[in-house]
Structure formats: structure tokens, C-alpha cells
């Protein structure tokens, strides 16, 4: 899968309260959550996001609480991928498990600015900065992680797996 989009750039330690403030935790509908994506970072941020945009963050992106709402809000807002120097552990798990492509790449963080247009090949982890004509290599995702993301998340992935295995056993 090739992802392409315009970049929003953030610093280190962007926490889950910035991504999705605690007051919205009772919401579970993704579209509703999307309306508040990054509101804790900047009040009018949700209106700025366009379908396909890419987030680039520093180290420890998504630190803080274990709320799955945070990556859900990012994905539902239309963000196609997050590249960061490093991710907080639970955010990383949650992100993959809800089907949000995540790539760790410190060089990409240094070499990408806000507003740049970036292209990512999710198959091999190649990140191209089309604005600056530079490229970076993130660690490629193993096949089962790609499967989870392509399925749209862990729930769908398991569902597909179970369906297929049943078909085989019939």
C-alpha cells in the first residue's frame, strides 16, 4: 500500500491528553472522536486535518494513558499514517490493533518539515519526502502486522483469520 499526504509535525512526548482530552473518553463513536482529534494540542486543530494527512512526531509519541480512543481519533480524522522517532508502548500496540499504520524512523523526523508532502510504502517502510526529494528507510513491518493494518485492525484481522481457517477445514 502506498500512502501519500501532507505533514503535520509535532515535538517529543506528545501525550494522549493532547491527542484526545479526557473529557471525551465517554464517546466511543469514531466519527465523533475524530471531531476532537488533537484538540488538547490546539483547540481548532480538528478542522485543519484533511483526509490522507500524515503525522510526524518526535520521541515517545502517544505517551500517557492507555486510551484506545487516541489512535482511533487520529485514524477516524483521516490521518493515513504516523511516523515518529519512537512511540509510547501502549499507543503503539493500540495503534496497530486498530489499524493505524505506524513507522518508527528518527532520520525521517529530522528530514521532514510541517507542510511537506510525504509518501510511504507500507510494504517496505520506504519514506519519501517528495517536497525535498529525500528518502528514509524505516524498519519494514512484518507480514502479520501489515495484515492487521490492511484488515482494519485486530478485531477484523482475527475475524478474517477465523473465517479462512474454517473455510480450509471444511
Amino acid at each position: 500500500m502506498i500512502i501519500q499526504g501532507r505533514v503535520f509535525k509535532f515535538g517529543d512526548d506528545l501525550d494522549t491528553d493532547a491527542i484526545l482530552p479526557g473529557q471525551y473518553l465517554s464517546i466511543s463513536n469514531p466519527e465523533e472522536l475524530a471531531k476532537h482529534c488533537m484538540e488538547g494540542y490546539q483547540q481548532d486543530f480538528p478542522q485543519k486535518i484533511k483526509q490522507g494527512d500524515i503525522f510526524v512526531g518526535g520521541s515517545n509519541f502517544g505517551c500517557g494513558s492507555s486510551r484506545e480512543h487516541a489512535p482511533i481519533a487520529i485514524k477516524a480524522a483521516g490521518v493515513s499514517c504516523v511516523i515518529a522517532k519512537s512511540f509510547a508502548r501502549i499507543f503503539y500496540r493500540n495503534g496497530i490493533n486498530i489499524g493505524l499504520p505506524l513507522f518508527e524512523c528518527a532520520e525521517a523526523y529530522e528530514g521532514i518539515d510541517e507542510g511537506d508532502t510525504v509518501q510511504i510504502d507500507t510494504n517496505n517502510g520506504l519514506i519519501k519526502n517528495l517536497t525535498k526529494a529525500t528518502q528514509f528507510q524505516a524498519m519494514p513491518l512484518p507480514d502479520f502486522i501489515k495484515d492487521i493494518i490492511m484488515s482494519g485492525g485486530l478485531v477484523e484481522y482475527v475475524k478474517n483469520k477465523l473465517k479462512n481457517s474454517r473455510r480450509i477445514s471444511l
Binding site: I90, R93, N97, L154, V155, V158
Partner: peptide, 13 residues
């Protein structure tokens, strides 16, 4: 330890 959805995945697979 993992979260509930993760655990559900292991329960199944």
C-alpha cells in the same frame, strides 16, 4: 499484561 482487545485476540488465536 495486555489490554482487553489484545487478550481477546489471543483467546481466539
Amino acid at each position: 499484561g495486555v489490554g482487553s482487545t489484545d487478550l481477546a485476540g489471543v483467546m481466539a488465536l
